[in-house]
Nucleic acid binder design. Structure first.
Length: 788
DNA sequence: GAGTTTGAAACT
DNA sequence: CAGTTTCAAACTC
């Protein structure tokens, strides 16, 4: 694994190699080279923003768990010198899970941490180019400083995490700064650096290195095209938001830094007011947060601090929830609730063991997460897509590694842990990804801009889901159905679907909101709804029950299975089919041509796992035939309005995609995926449940719709690549190879026409970038794809 | 907007 | 695991 990746990376890295930062990193850890591959892509403006990292990470995962382990080893080596011989798991534990390990000897937990961390690392590393590098390396350095893991490991770990996050955020801010406001940025950047140094000094003296690294990194970042930087910003900001959330509950230490970063970000960030708005909210919280932070700092060493932190965070949340009348908050709450609840419980109820372990882990995870998110954000703009899928994402994220099964199982065994990882991870990650998406979206489309602009703020704050919901909600304040339709019609509405449950009390998977891991909101027309923050305990308990029954119950239904899609393989060969429904559909009468079919709804082709009869899924038949869907079919199924919207969106998406695709075959495709979903977004299910997957799948779908289904087929191979490849990449990478169907489809002669997708694609690249980011988010799912 | 159809989720 | 029931979305009128 290492060798191949390194080899691949080799070329791309060369660029970085020149930079002192790169050298520094290299000295620290051998692993980096692997990342570089992605990085190279990242360097490209489009690519950089794109998900390459995400793809890569998932890809790695998809390849095999072994990869993760290897990577860990590789990464660990730098740190692990002490534990050079440590197994993969051990190495990871050392890095991210040190706290947990010390606190708890639980191998299971360690493994979980390890897995999550690994996945995160990989994701972050691959996707993010330099950011990830920094993060990774920094920890290593810290570890070195820390010396034996036993000593104050927890603090060290936190520190690392904090540093990591800070570095990332700061670097991002710096980057933004440099790009947007060179003058102010310089000062700001200096300030950040100084802060960083401070932190480093307090906890360990890596200051000089860090500063130099940071400065170098910033330089590099700045170096990157503005687009990339923007993408980073979005991702970073998004990441920061989640951090804040997490930090409140989990990582108070990080909070201060994060908050500061956020503030700086806000100041620096000229971008969407919405984001700033969100950040503002956090800032308001910062007041409390500062106090908490101070306390936390004083308590840094004390393990007890975790509890106090948890309490403080809890209090904070309560206060916020109460105070916040803003839709944003409501949105946040909606998204966060599950996560928060889990965190709260952990912090409050679990007490030392659980709380400590959880806290420590989450922090690390969070940091990693943020990174991932960032990467995701870049890559995918799939804001819409992401949002809906967030709930699923969380689970997926938790199980990001293909071993998701193992992870889930473990988590299940531990109960709470499972919940947390899944909930926290999923929520956060989604949120992050979503936020970026929103931003990107805002920038991308004027239409969306208006809506998003309003929603954007809220979006930023919460997870993607929340944002999606918020948007949808805000947009659709009318009756749920109407809103739904609106949303459906408007691609954006995707995320905002609401439930209409009457008997399930919104505590069953029947409820889209519940299934998506979000609370029901006013727009919902549900009756006797228990899926509300007020009934948090009930919701969590129910969730647990469902998860105990089916660990993947809240995972995205549609997964870009690496299996289905060949890894990298051939972009051309990849087809939309790469994404598959987790369990497969069981359609009898709809021929998989209506939204009754989850596969179709998710914009993915049916697979072997499907038990459908008379499958005519336009995205891909069960038998492996290339997407059968013809223009007529699609048209028939889709409403004219939807078609139009989809087309428009698809055009935009296509345009965006094209650019990336042109730049990089791999990344572009990914980008395209997210875009695609939008058309489908109308479907509430997709948006929520299968964000990522949806995104990917939807991407395909959209492509088809846009260009009309034909496009995919008809599109020349090159074009297809853009459309299909992206999707494939994410999942494909993970799985390695694609399902026959995908390959067949892509190659399938079906492509009767060469539809002029180009025209569509031609649109502005900027939009693409945003959407692309969304797509990136999708990639995370692939890892989950267990089914195949 | 009401009613029907559909298939997933839940239950047995 | 299979069959049945429940449920809510998707769809039709």
């Amino acid at each position: 694994m290492d060798t191949p990746e390194r080899n691949q990376i080799g070329t791309p890295i060369s660029k970085f190699e020149d930079s002192p930062v790169f050298n520094y990193i290299n000295s620290l850890s051998p692993i980096k080279p692997v990342k570089s591959t992605h990085i190279t892509q990242a360097f490209n403006p489009l690519n950089f923003a794109s998900l390459p990292s995400v793809f890569t990470s998932p890809h790695v995962n998809s390849h095999k768990e072994s990869r993760f382990l290897k990577r860990h080893n590789c990464l660990d080596p730098s740190k692990p010198e002490s534990s050079s011989g440590n197994g993969d798991k051990i190495g990871t534990n050392e890095r991210t899970g040190v706290d947990a390990a010390q606190l708890q000897d639980n191998s299971a937990e360690l493994q979980e941490n390890f897995d999550s961390e690994v996945s995160l690392k990989e994701a972050s590393v691959q996707p993010s180019s330099e950011h990830s590098k920094f993060v990774i390396e920094l920890p290593c350095t810290l570890k070195y400083d820390c010396g034996s893991p036993d000593c104050g490991v927890t603090l060290n770990c936190d520190f690392e995490v904090g540093c990591m996050s800070e570095l990332v955020s700061k670097s991002a801010s710096l980057i933004q700064y440099g790009q947007e406001a060179s003058g102010n940025g310089s000062s700001e950047g200096e300030v950040h650096l100084s802060e960083m140094c401070r932190i480093g000094q307090k906890k360990e003296g890596m200051e000089c290195d860090w500063e130099s690294l940071i400065s170098d990194a910033t330089g590099l970042l700045i170096f990157n095209s503005p687009n990339n930087s923007e993408a980073f910003k979005g991702s970073i900001q998004k990441s920061t938001d989640p951090r804040i959330r997490f930090s409140t509950s989990l990582m108070p230490q990080l909070h201060q830094n994060d908050i500061k970063n956020l503030q700086t970000m806000q100041i620096i960030d000229p971008i969407g007011s919405g984001e700033q708005y969100e950040t503002d909210n956090p800032s308001a919280e910062t007041g409390e947060g500062n106090e908490l932070q101070e306390i936390e700092q004083t308590q840094d060493n004390a393990a007890e601090s975790n509890l106090s932190k948890g309490m403080s965070s809890h209090m904070r949340e309560q206060v916020e929830s109460e105070d916040v009348s803003n839709l944003h908050r409501g949105m946040r709450r909606r998204c966060l609730d599950f996560e928060m609840a889990g965190a709260r419980r952990k912090a409050l109820g679990d007490a030392s063991n659980f709380g400590s372990s959880m806290l420590s882990q989450p922090d690390e995870k969070i940091s990693c997460y943020d990174k991932q998110l960032v990467a995701i954000k870049r890559s995918g703009d799939s804001s819409r897509c992401i949002l809906p899928g967030i709930g699923l994402h969380l689970n997926a994220l938790a199980t990001t590694s293909k071993d998701h099964k193992n992870i889930k199982l473990e988590s299940l065994s531990s109960g709470i842990q499972l919940y947390l990882p899944s909930s926290t991870a999923s929520l956060h990650s989604p949120t992050n990804s979503q936020e970026p998406l929103h931003k990107s979206l805002t920038s991308v489309s004027a239409e969306r801009d208006t809506d998003l602009a309003e929603n954007g703020v809220s979006h930023v704050e919460d997870a993607s889901q929340a944002s999606a919901y918020l948007v949808s909600e805000e947009l659709n304040q009318n009756s749920p159905k109407k809103k739904r339709r609106r949303l459906e019609h408007a691609g954006e509405s995707e995320s905002c679907k609401r439930c209409n449950c009457k008997k399930s009390k919104c505590l069953k998977l029947y409820c889209e909101c519940f299934a998506a891991g979000v609370y029901c909101i006013e727009p919902c027309s549900c009756q006797e709804c228990f899926n509300k923050p007020i009934h948090e305990d009930t919701v969590l308990a129910t969730r647990k029950q469902i998860e105990s029954r089916n660990p993947l119950a809240f995972a995205p239904k549609v997964i870009r299975s690496s299996e289905s899609v060949t890894e990298v393989g051939d972009e051309s060969s990849k087809t939309p089919a790469s994404a598959r429904h987790k369990r497969g559909c069981n359609c009898k009468k709809s021929n998989c041509l209506k939204k009754y079919c989850e596969c179709y709804q998710g914009g993915v082709g049916c697979s072997i796992s499907c038990r459908c009869e008379g499958c005519k899924n336009a995205f891909g038949r069960k038998d492996g035939c290339a997407p059968i869907v013809t223009e007529t079919d699609i048209e028939e199924e889709t409403d004219a309005c939807e078609m139009e919207k989809a087309i428009q969106k698809s055009d935009i998406q296509n345009n965006e995609e094209q650019n990336p695709a042109t730049t990089l075959p791999t990344t572009p495709l990914r980008l395209s995926r997210p875009l695609v979903p939008l058309p489908f977004s109308s479907n509430g299910k997709l948006s929520r449940s299968s964000f990522l997957t949806v995104g990917s799948s939807s991407g395909l779908y959209t492509c088809q719709k846009l260009g009309k289904p034909n496009i995919l087929r008809s599109l020349p191979k090159l074009e297809r690549r853009f459309q299909t490849v992206p999707e494939d990449e994410m999942p494909e990478i993970l799985c390695g190879n694609s399902s026959p169907s995908t390959g067949i489809k892509s190659a399938s002669p079906n492509s009767k026409r060469v539809s002029p997708p180009h025209g569509d694609f031609g649109s502005s690249p900027s939009r693409r970038s945003g959407r692309k980011l969304i797509l990136q988010s999708i990639p995370s799912f692939p890892s989950l794809t267990p089914q195949h």
